[in-house]
């Protein structure tokens, strides 16, 4: 096909960006991941599968990411419905600002906020004790439930925004028609709202899954002592153990395995990635 000069002018920065900032570093990492002490080797990849701590950490990370994604979805659906269909237009803008407000500060600050709230000598414990609900302060940090809550909190916006945009395009009369034809609330969710929102659900879920899987701070700070996250292992390989080869291999395994999980998820729910753009 013949391309005009303008086409190349516009496409060149994109190609440069892709090649210089995405493709080349990844190629470098890929090569690194196949290097041993002195020669080419597959050991870095083999280590992942033969050393239970590595693949168990990955499985744990992936499972928690899936759980977090599902929880985020379940929480975000009614929120998005309220914002798009029930709230008055003025309130709607306000609600969106409220949703985005936490993202005006860095993730680190947000997490420290949670820690101040939940720690043993924290705000929540102070109120629980002064209300006489507990005698002893309760440690609410450093467990998996808190960590998942933190992850859900951090991910909420990335699920709500795509859902709001698809729900916006849902004609109210479809919901009323379903109701008129005898559908209960649950049935309307199942047969009308969720099928309509599928593209938003899929893209939101992919974004949230990837963000959670790649998160480092939240599991580390809120999860505490039991929360080895796969990203932390990559970090450790690079920084603590100086083993860049192993770290690079882990990085690629994360890329490949998480892509595989998403592919599987799309397959199981009968989605195709191409449909997302529509």
């Amino acid at each position: 096909m013949k391309r005009s000069g303008m086409f190349w002018i516009f496409i060149t920065p994109v190609l440069l960006w892709l090649v210089l900032l995405i493709f080349l570093p990844h190629l470098d990492l890929l090569l690194l991941s196949f290097r041993g002490d002195a020669s080419w080797t597959l050991d870095n990849y083999r280590n992942f599968f033969t050393e239970p701590i590595y693949w168990l950490t990955f499985v744990r990370t992936a499972l928690y990411s899936i759980i977090t994604t599902l929880l985020t979805l379940i929480l975000a659906l009614p929120v998005a419905l309220y914002v798009t269909k029930i709230a008055k237009p003025g309130l709607r803008g306000f609600l969106m600002v409220l949703l985005m407000l936490p993202f005006w500060v860095s993730e680190l600050v947000r997490i420290y906020g949670w820690m101040i709230l939940l720690r043993e000598s924290g705000v929540l414990n102070y109120f629980l004790q002064s209300l006489g609900l507990t005698n002893q302060p309760v440690e609410m940090l450093y467990n998996d439930a808190t960590m998942i809550m933190g992850l859900v909190y951090t991910s909420m916006l990335f699920m709500v925004i795509p859902l709001v945009s698809v729900m916006d395009s849902l004609d109210n009369s479809l919901i009323e028609a379903a109701c008129d034809l005898g559908a209960s609330k649950i049935c309307i969710w199942r047969t009308i709202i969720i099928p309509h929102c599928k593209p938003g659900i899929v893209s939101g879920s992919i974004v949230v899954f990837m963000l959670v899987l790649g998160n480092y701070l939240t599991p580390n700070l809120m999860g505490g002592k039991n929360s080895l996250w796969f990203t932390e292992q990559i970090y450790n390989q690079f920084i603590a153990s100086f083993n860049w080869n192993q770290g690079a291999a882990f990085g690629f395994l994360l890329l490949v395995l998480s892509s595989a999980i998403i592919w599987l998820g799309l397959k199981l729910t009968g989605q195709r990635l191409g449909e997302l753009s529509s």
């Binding site: 570093p25 990844h26 990559i234 994360l254 890329l255």
Partner: peptide, 17 residues
């Protein structure tokens, strides 16, 4: 799917930055 590309995260970016 450019999302997965950002996955390697810190280290690639750190090098670039």
């Amino acid at each position: 799917m450019p999302l997965t590309l950002t996955l390697l995260g810190d280290f690639v970016m750190k090098k670039v930055v």
